[in-house]
Design a protein around this nucleic acid. Structure first.
Length: 879
RNA sequence: GGGAGCUUAGCUCAGCUGGUUCAGAGCAUCUGCCUUACAAGCAGAGGGUCACUGGUUCGAACCCAGUAGUUCCCACCA
């Protein structure tokens, strides 16, 4: 059957993925082998695959496939995250399109819609991962809001509450006016934006005296309950203790003093709005100021504002400026750059807002998590993230864990009609607890559950434990076998959101780390260096890329230039390179496959390839060792590059070209079998990166049983380093390159054979490869001579002098110039070596080994100069 | 404001304990080739004052200090 000239991924990828699934190759159950476990960073259940997922999951698949081939019991647990805010926002938007408002629905009805939405779109992303080739154990797919995982969340909440780590309180929180919920500090992204600094004057009570303040948020003037100045500020000392009139609302508020105020900034006078600024809130607490909340949860002006009722805060900001100007109270404005917090999920401008929330105290429970990263019990890759991690962990804030949403685990706190509460799993448990507190239930008594749900991360921080049912059944076979997991692959953006908290939960609930290594990927960026995102529209659809370049091509493209922790400046040409590589391998397969049959062949190529196969075996083993080493350092892209070069350069450009039989000739069976074995080893080394094409070729290259697969094969072995043969071969390569270069510069076509002679008397290390050189360069032969020929082109490889017989074509002057230049270079090199060696301080201070190599350099250089000089002499003769 | 990292070829990056495996790789570029596996290819070649300035050292891309640029994290002076 004719094999197509180009590799067609679409013809193979689904076929082999189905085959792997059918044979349960991804499945893992505990057994006697060493486990190797990865839990997936669960993507948003209703999300779709983006480039970050591609990078992330490709790396995980590479690691898991290699571990499987190393004979470990590899288990990659997939799953999805319920993503409270994001999913709820999408469901709300979907309902709104249908004309349904969330507020008109009961909690139950809303959740019904949400679950329907989840059933419809949930899991799309997991199907997309299959296209990428991800070898997850799909039977283990978990979802953070399924019953068992939700139970775990609730139990953990109750447990931490009982231990005194969880408390409820009114605090200034980050309010997301679009998501209508509090978010944690980590979910706020600060960006510098251009804004305006408004200078507004306030009249001091019963005087004609005015104080001008500077603010970026004039709309909050309506909620001012004080003006604050620095007690040391002479400009304002006469006003201490006086009252001032807030413009518009004409409210009388005190002028207070506090050293918090910077005299240099603005006018040195600060308006204090305790309801809308964290610092003002603290001032308010300290000075017992009133709190006037002028905004609604949606970020519109509330009744308390007294003006602009129901209008958006940003609209009002402009309006109030105008109105202040009309009354002459706006002194001036100036452009100003300020840092504004945005919601990580909805991108709305965060509003500091006072509200009652649940918090988890972090200080105590985070201690083991800090310690075990610092002492490398848990290794962060790259290591530089240790610094960031430590900094965060040493300054960790309490975690606001309640969210004013419905999609998520409802907080297991129960309130009676007086507002008293208990924490319990069920209503009946709650009643018992209330009774224990002395409460007597009457017919009128009602108790109700807290309306809020828990932060999504409060479920995903349990992920490495909960996916193995480590809460439901803490001593089950799975958790005992798979936990702690081995590698976690994720983005540095969620180092605190998720990684740190998983570590905390691991030590709190298993007394042990959740994973040993954390591989932090970079951010996928576009050519302009911008982060790829849906809102910017600069992200290619990964599935389109897979269609265009094949999953293998895209995988290689993603990994070619993304060392751990480095951002990946993505360019489609990387995928093209991946696709081209696939095609290269495909054609190597076509070539080798053509050697299988002896039919129509005129005879057998009887040349001896023993040395060549010895060389390639040595090369293969040494590169395997190198690749293993790179893996152990998580230098994944370098490991890929090593295989890339091994296949493209060493195998295709050298080995295959060398053993290729002449036209019409058949290959010796032994050579063929060795070649196939080499090819199989290469395919195995490549398999973690390019699972589909390697399977396709591996299946075709030899007869296979119906349940065999390259993914279940064992990883190639290494042998002792054969540096001698490797060095000799690279010297031979050098000679080949020199001769090719000579052909090119002298315009001697390949079909015209060249004669070469080797001046004897030296070691014959390269001679092992003479037949290879003859073949690769189309030489008539290499003659060993004892007298140097005249007027031939000399090539010196190490201490071997070769002469290329191109008498008529040689330009003596040019050659002389070349050699002279080399002599000058070598002499100056020798000079620098001599300088070192004659330096007494060098000889006495430097390591003896270094001195020895310098001595060797010296003798080598001297010998080389001698040779070059004799060549120069030989050139002149005969002309 | 505090902290951390980075700066090596046109691009993306290696370069470990200072010393010829020290200036490298892939891509891109240039030149010549449709050589019967592959033009998604083959062969060859050219690209770098290792950000800058000083210092330490017999010797610095590498160690130290400073400067500039850049990225990230934390904190949020309105």
């Amino acid at each position: 059957m004719e094999i197509p000239k180009t590799y067609d991924p679409s013809a193979t990828e689904d076929k082999w993925y189905g085959y792997w699934m059918k044979n349960n190759f991804f499945k893992s159950v505990p057994d006697h082998r060493e486990p190797y476990t990865i839990v997936i960073p669960p993507p948003n259940v209703t999300g779709v695959l983006h480039m970050g997922h591609m990078l992330n999951n490709t790396i995980q698949d590479v690691l898991i496939r290699r571990a499987r081939m190393l004979g470990k019991n590899a288990c990659w647990v997939p799953g999805t995250d319920h993503a409270s805010i994001a999913t709820e926002a999408r469901v709300v938007a979907m309902l709104r399109e249908k004309g349904i408002e969330k507020k008109d629905l009961s909690r139950e009805d809303f959740l019904k819609h949400a679950w329907e939405w989840k059933e419809k779109y949930g899991g799309i992303i997991l199907e997309q991962l299959k296209k990428l080739g991800a070898s997850c154990d799909w039977d283990r797919t978990r979802f953070t809001m399924e019953d068992d995982l939700s139970d775990a969340v609730i139990e953990v909440f109750i447990d931490l509450y009982k231990k005194g780590h969880i408390y409820r309180g009114t605090r200034m929180v980050n309010w997301d006016p679009a998501g209508l919920t509090a978010v944690s500090d980590e979910e706020v992204i600060h960006k510098e934006i251009d804004s305006t600094l408004y200078y507004v004057r306030y009249q001091v009570e019963d005087t004609n005296d005015w104080v001008t303040i500077a603010t970026t948020r004039p709309e909050t003037i309506l909620g001012d309950t004080a003006i604050c100045v620095n007690p040391e500020d002479d400009r304002y000392k006469h006003l201490h203790g006086k009252n001032i009139i807030v413009p518009m609302v004409n409210r009388l508020v005190p002028i207070i003093t506090d050293s918090y105020v910077t005299m240099e900034f603005g006018t040195g006078a600060l308006k204090v709005t305790p309801a809308h600024d964290i610092n003002d809130y603290q001032l308010g607490q300290k000075h017992k100021l009133a709190t006037i909340d002028v905004l609604t949860p949606e970020g519109k002006m509330s009744a308390a504002a007294g003006f602009y009722l129901g209008e958006d805060r940003f609209v009002v900001r402009k309006k109030i400026a105008k109105d202040l100007e009309l009354t002459g109270n706006l002194v001036k404005t100036e452009p100003y750059k300020s840092n504004v917090g945005f919601s990580e999920r909805t991108n709305a401008v965060i509003e500091p807002r006072l509200s009652m929330q649940w918090f988890l105290k972090m200080e105590e429970i985070s201690k083991p998590a800090l310690e075990n990263v610092m002492n490398d019990n848990i290794r962060l890759v790259p290591e530089k993230f240790k610094n960031t991690y430590r900094h965060w962990m040493e300054n960790v804030h309490d975690w606001c864990i309640s969210r004013q949403l419905w999609w998520g685990q409802q907080i297991p706190a129960w309130y009676d009609e007086t507002g008293d509460f208990v924490v319990a799993k069920t209503e009946s448990d709650a009643r018992i607890l209330f009774e224990a507190k002395g409460k007597i239930f009457t017919k009128e008594s009602t108790i109700s559950q807290d309306e809020d749900v828990l932060d999504t991360w409060f479920s995903s921080w349990l992920w490495p434990i909960s996916v193995f049912d480590g809460f439901k059944d803490p001593n089950n076979a799975d958790i005992n076998y798979y936990y702690p997991t081995n590698d976690l692959v994720t983005a540095p953006e969620i180092l605190f959101f998720w990684v740190a908290r998983m570590i905390i939960a691991g030590y709190e609930y298993r007394g042990e780390k959740p994973f040993t290594n954390v591989y932090l990927t970079g951010i996928v960026r576009d050519k302009l260096g911008r982060k790829m995102s849906k809102s910017l529209g600069n992200s290619p659809d990964p599935l389109d890329l897979i269609t265009k370049y094949g999953a293998d091509g895209v995988r290689v493209g993603m990994l070619l230039s993304s060392p751990a922790g480095n951002d990946l400046p993505f360019d489609e040409s990387l995928c093209e390179q991946g696709r081209n590589f696939a095609n290269k391998i495909w054609n190597a397969f076509r070539l080798i496959n053509g050697w299988k049959s002896l039919e129509d062949k005129e005879g057998v190529d009887n040349r001896d390839y023993t040395k060549i196969t010895e060389w390639f075996k040595a090369k293969l083993e040494s590169e395997t060792a190198n690749i293993n080493d790179l893996y152990s350092k998580y230098r994944i892209s370098e490991a890929l590059m090593a295989i890339y070069k091994l296949i493209w350069d060493d195998f295709c450009s050298w080995y295959l070209e060398i053993v290729k039989p002449g036209i019409g000739m058949a290959m010796q069976e032994a050579t063929y079998n060795t070649t196939i074995t080499f090819f199989e080893s290469l395919l195995k080394l490549l398999h973690p990166f390019m699972p589909f094409i390697t399977e396709e070729i591996w299946q075709s290259i030899r007869e296979r049983k119906s349940n065999e697969s390259i993914m279940m094969e064992t990883w190639p072995t290494t042998g002792p380093e054969e540096s001698k043969i490797l060095n000799n071969f690279s010297s031979a390569m050098e000679l080949v390159t020199e001769i090719r270069n000579l052909r090119k510069t002298k315009n001697i076509p390949m079909r015209e054979p060249l004669a070469v002679s080797l001046f004897t008397g030296k070691s014959d290390a390269i001679a092992d490869f003479h037949s290879m050189i003859i073949k690769m360069c189309n030489l008539s032969g290499i003659e060993i001579i004892s007298n140097k020929p005249d007027g031939q082109a000399p090539i010196m490889i190490r201490d071997h002098e070769y002469f290329i017989h191109i008498q008529g074509l040689i330009n003596i002057e040019e050659e002389q110039k070349k050699i002279t230049e080399e002599i000058i270079y070598t002499k100056s090199f020798l000079e620098s070596v001599m300088k070192k060696l004659s330096n007494e301080r060098f000889v006495s201070n430097a390591n003896p080994e270094i001195v020895a190599t310098e001595n060797k350099k010296k003798s080598d250089a001297e010998a080389r100069i001698k040779l070059l000089e004799s060549q120069l002499e030989g050139l002149g003769k005969g002309h």
